[in-house]
Design a protein around this nucleic acid. Structure first.
Length: 155
DNA sequence: GCCAACGTTGGC
DNA sequence: GCCAACGTTGGC
């Protein structure tokens, strides 16, 4: 069992939206970065834990928990010419982009903001989220970092 | 809105 | 293979 952090912009799809979904589950479509795709394809397994992160908003931070709910499968939006994430170079017989389903677990009792995570940088050495210039939308989280972040929720 | 950091593209 | 130009991400 592994742990992940997944970013989303709450203006388009936040943790509240995930909670309201049928079966509280949503295909995580639109990932167009090879490193993030490879995490989904090669390392994510159903049952893995997810920190649901809100980016590009007034108070960026971790707002809830989710879990991986499927193995990786082709992202249908890559084949839809009308879709914002259409990729003309990807062929159905050889899909370039994959996704996983993500299922809502719970909101955090309180958000753990990026600013607070930075204050605890000494406990989170190596956590890519607080590294400078991080832009990856899916990040692995070590069990140690997961535990420390969970402890912050209760602090 | 600004801008630094990063990934991708494409000419050579 | 190099690297400049460009587009995107995301905090502030």
């Amino acid at each position: 069992m592994a742990y992940w952090l997944m970013k989303s912009e709450p203006d388009s799809f936040g943790i509240d939206d995930l909670k309201k979904r049928p079966r509280q589950t949503e295909p995580w479509d639109g990932v167009r970065n090879y490193q993030a795709r490879n995490f989904m394809r090669d390392r994510m397994k159903p049952g893995d834990g997810v920190l649901f992160y809100h980016s590009n908003c007034a108070a960026p931070g971790i707002y809830g928990l989710a879990e991986i709910a499927s193995n990786a499968y082709p992202d249908p939006t890559q084949f839809d010419p009308e879709h914002h994430h259409y990729d003309a170079g990807s062929k159905p017989e050889e899909p370039r982009w994959l996704l996983v389903d993500v299922r809502y677990e719970r909101h955090l009792k309180r958000p753990i903001l990026l600013s607070e995570l930075r204050e605890h940088a000494d406990e989170l050495v190596g956590f890519k989220l607080i590294a400078k210039g991080n832009r990856l939308s899916i990040l692995p989280v070590t069990p140690q970092h997961w535990r420390r972040i969970m402890a912050l929720e209760k602090a």
